[in-house]
Design a protein around this nucleic acid. Structure first.
Lengths: 109, 109
DNA sequence: ATCGTATATCGTAAATTTACGATTAATGAT
DNA sequence: ATCATTAATCGTAAATTTACGATATACGAT
């Protein structure tokens, strides 16, 4: 952004927006789905399933790791990635809560 | 992005990512919360509650409207905004579904 | 008809994101 | 020790996002 005004927002809103932003790319949605289905897998397997270069996928993985949605641990020359279930549940609840108050038909016609 | 490779991803992933991205700014999270609490309110009321210029807030409102999270209808010189409940429920379900398969403790140690 | 208010849009600058080739680092195999 | 493989990081270009002042638009009031 032109100027960082994030300090003028509630920390809660900043952190939820941060997670939402990290979900804001189809490659990262796809990675989450792959990891959910496979339970855990090598970086290379993920690269194979995406229409992006290894460098770009690595960048997306880094972003998902940054917000804590996934974990990765190095196993020799390979890296094994998986969903961080505890964190995902936390985030699931935050989104559910954001949407929860909505219920009874919209106010606008 | 440098090149638009979005066509190489599933439409479903692209559209969920699109919504996530629209939630990826604290001002827009805040706007949703304000509209949820107030049920419906004038554009000006929202501007007053955000540390951003009128032009910038208008831009954020436009983005939320684009993905369908909110509706706005013009009433004379004013515009009245509100949550689009039906759409929000739809989106709530999509996120819930994305996170739902996750449940039983992460695979990585 | 003119004026004031409310909001959208335009133009634009700065920051950030996305993508990729090239390089580096780290390990296992020979 | 050398080589092949895997993945992270660097450097960088292009696209997008964010922000705001200025302007345009649309309406109600006078």
């Amino acid at each position: 952004m032109a100027e960082a005004k994030l300090n003028k927002f509630a920390a809660e809103d900043v952190s939820l927006a941060d997670v939402a932003k990290s979900l804001g790319h189809p490659a990262r949605i796809r990675i989450l789905k792959i990891l959910t289905d496979m339970n855990l897998c090598m970086c290379g397997d993920i690269v194979d399933q995406l229409p992006l270069s290894q460098a770009t996928v690595s960048q997306h993985l880094k972003e998902l790791k940054r917000v804590g949605l996934i974990k990765g641990n190095v196993e020799g020359p390979k890296t094994c990635y998986c969903i961080d279930n505890q964190r995902i549940e936390e985030i699931r609840d935050k989104f559910a809560n954001l949407f929860s108050k909505v219920c009874c038909g919209s106010a606008c016609k």
